[in-house]
Amino acid sequence: MAVAMNGALSGRTVTEIAAASDSDGSNATVCVIADGDPFCWGSGTAGQLGDGRATNSSVPVAVQSGGAIVPGTTTRIALGHRTACAVAAGTPVCWGLRADSAVPAAVDASGALSGTVTSDIDFGDRHGCVVADARAHCWSVGASFELGIGGPAHDSPPVAVDTSGALSSCATGWLPAMLGAGQCAPGEGIEVGYRVSYQKAGWSSPDTVVISAWRGPAS
């Protein structure tokens, strides 16, 4: 059965869709992106339709824009437990039960997400994750082990997922330098080549190539 396209979606082109429901099949909600803006319909009793109300809708309604969502900039959308999230203008926003808001609210970017650009987002029951600057970040709204940092947390803002193990992008024998995403340091026994030169009284020495083996741990 075709979704009603003579109302909020009239004349628009849908490019992405997400749907979710409670475990018993009730409270089903659907959201789409159409021409860069989010629209939702179905169950909205927890504010997951994003239009400022806590009511259901049998036809698509526009998610409130102009606040946390810049009009025409939504690129990704996801639905979890009575909660919707989106990426708008490179910023993650959520609304509904877990966001405690019936209109889009920006995800806390004061920590690990500060200065980053988000490209993807997803949300489960009590936790969300984003890809920001090619690195995974997650947060939890319940005491659990969903943050990806090796321990429990409660009501935490997004943190960068640990990339020192299976997610490491470093070459064999190299270790994450912990100086920033994508930076690596030589592991024990790795040979490192570098060039050395010096200047004195306006004269520069020729470059000297030095090859040495790293004997200590990465720092």
Rank of each mutant, 00 (worst) to 15 (best):
A4D: 15
A4F: 09
A4Y: 07
M5S: 08
M5Q: 08
N6P: 03
A8C: 03
T13K: 15
V14R: 12
E16N: 10
I17W: 01
I17P: 01
S21K: 07
C31D: 05
C31E: 08
I33V: 12
D37N: 15
W41L: 11
S43G: 04
T45N: 10
R53M: 01
S57M: 06
V59H: 03
P71H: 07
P71R: 09
P71T: 11
G72V: 10
A78C: 02
T83Y: 08
A89W: 07
T91K: 15
W95H: 12
G96I: 01
A99D: 09
S101F: 00
A102K: 14
A102N: 14
A105S: 13
A109N: 10
A112Q: 02
S114V: 05
D120C: 01
D122K: 07
D125P: 00
R126F: 07
G128S: 07
V130Q: 05
V131D: 00
A134L: 05
A136W: 06
S144G: 01
S156R: 09
S156V: 08
V159A: 13
V159G: 14
V161Y: 11
V161K: 07
D162P: 02
T163P: 01
S164E: 12
C170Y: 10
W174N: 13
M178S: 15
L179H: 00
A181L: 05
G182Y: 13
G187D: 10
G189Y: 06
E191Y: 12
G193E: 10
R195A: 15
G202Y: 06
D207E: 15
V209N: 06
V210Q: 08
I211R: 06
G216T: 15
A218L: 05
